[in-house]
């Protein structure tokens, strides 16, 4: 057996609850610091784009949100797979804790994309492959959350949600390519995001720092939410009763 530090210890909700409580301030702190630095870079240091003028600055929110929305879905499916494989309750709780943050970021990226599209393309919405697949990703998040909300038995809700997350993650590449080909076959792409002019190093740096900030925020938010889920599920257990007594 491993002596001293044992990672498996934290697969128990009781110990993870305490660990998450200690980690959350650090992640929120990192999110705040990186966010402040990133916003400073993006609004004060990054130069004005000569084609899109100031409107382009929305990418500093838009691109990190879009990246994280996709990344979180994969992480969520990973937790779901872990839960189904090893039957660990905490993995399912992490998957359901990540879903609302992922859905929120998907919505943010769609919303900011519309705000950017109006001045740049002259339209709030175009049926571009990326926009459409991001919209479908939003639907997948909603389906996951709706399924879990409809099931009262937590064990069934966990497993059903995990299965639909896995089915979704298998389908995401198929959906992405079908939408991409649909778009190129229907009409010549009137706007292309892929042929972006080479980006100034400062802009890229701002975007990366913002992406890190969003990442840290997502971890902190998921940990806070998982703590609530743990308390709710374990409300009848002894350690919760002891903890509440100690706090009083």
């Amino acid at each position: 057996m491993m002596s001293g530090f044992n990672l498996y210890k934290y697969s128990s909700p009781a110990t993870f609850y305490a660990l998450a409580g200690r980690l959350i301030p650090w992640f929120y702190g990192a999110a705040a610091l990186l966010g402040a630095a990133g916003l400073y870079v993006s609004f004060f240091l990054a130069p004005t784009d000569f084609q899109q003028s100031e409107a382009y600055r929305i990418i500093f929110i838009h691109v990190p949100a879009a990246w994280m929305s996709m990344f979180i879905y994969i992480v969520m499916a990973g937790w779901a797979a872990l839960g189904l494989a090893f039957n660990t309750r905490l993995s399912f709780m992490m998957a359901s804790a990540l879903a609302p943050t992922g859905a929120m970021l998907t919505f943010v990226s769609l919303w900011t994309g519309a705000l950017w599209g109006k001045p740049t393309w002259g339209a709030w919405w175009v049926w571009d492959a990326r926009l459409t697949s991001e919209l479908i990703l939003f639907f997948l998040y909603l389906g996951f959350m709706a399924l879990q909300a409809a099931i009262d038995d937590p064990r069934r809700a966990d497993r059903a949600g995990a299965l639909i997350a896995l089915v979704g993650v298998v389908n995401v590449p198929i959906i992405y390519f079908s939408v991409k080909w649909w778009n190129t076959l229907h009409q010549g792409a009137s706007v292309s995001l892929t042929k972006a002019p080479s980006m100034a190093a400062v802009m890229l740096a701002g975007m990366l720092v913002m992406a890190l900030a969003v990442w840290m925020y997502a971890i902190a938010a998921a940990l806070s939410r998982v703590r609530c889920i743990i308390l709710e599920r374990e409300r009848n257990s002894q350690w919760v009763a002891q903890m509440l007594e100690a706090e009083e």
Partner: peptide, 15 residues
Amino acid sequence: LVSLLVLPLYIPVLI
């Protein structure tokens, strides 16, 4: 609920 779960997955077939 079925429609919410299944319709997004039907999209490639529709396309």
